[in-house]
Amino acid sequence: MRLRPLLLPLSGIVALAVGLVTVGDLNGNLVYYLTPDEAVERRAEFPEDRRFRLAGEVGGEEVRRSEHGASFTVAGSDVEVAVVHAGVVPHLFQAGIPVVVEGAWRGEVFRSDTMLIKHDEEYYPADEADDALAGPADSGTDRAAGP
C-alpha cells in the first residue's frame, strides 16, 4: 500500500496536536476572553496592571455614553461587572448586545480602552429582531445604514 509512508508524519502531527492541547496548555492560551463570573472569581490572578479581555452582555440599565466613551455593566450568569470604557464606541453598541472589552481591573471596576462587538450567529429582519433583543433594534439599523 502506497499510503504507508504517510502513516508516520500523520501520527506525528496527531501526537503533537494532542500533546499541545493536554500538556502544553494550548487551550489556556486560546482563551480569547473571560466571562464576568470568571473575572470576579479569578480577581486575584489579575492585578491592576494585567490586561485581559472581558465579555458579556451590556446591562439594560445604567448605560451612559460620554464624550470619551461609555460606562455600563456587563452581565454574567451570576454577577455583573461595572465597566468604564474610554475609547472608541462601536456603532452597534447598545443595551442587550454582547461586547468584548479589553483592559484591567481598577478596584471593583473594569477600565477598558478597546471595545469590540461580539455579534451572535442570529440574523433576523428588524421587526423579528425587536422581539429577540430587548434594546431598540431600529436605531441600530438607522446608524448602520446611514452614510
Partner: peptide, 14 residues
C-alpha cells in the same frame, strides 16, 4: 433580501 435588524446593510456582505 430583508435588512438585518441589528447590523443593517452590513449583514449583506455575509
Amino acid at each position: 433580501a430583508p435588512t438585518d435588524g441589528l447590523q443593517g446593510v452590513l449583514q449583506r456582505l455575509m
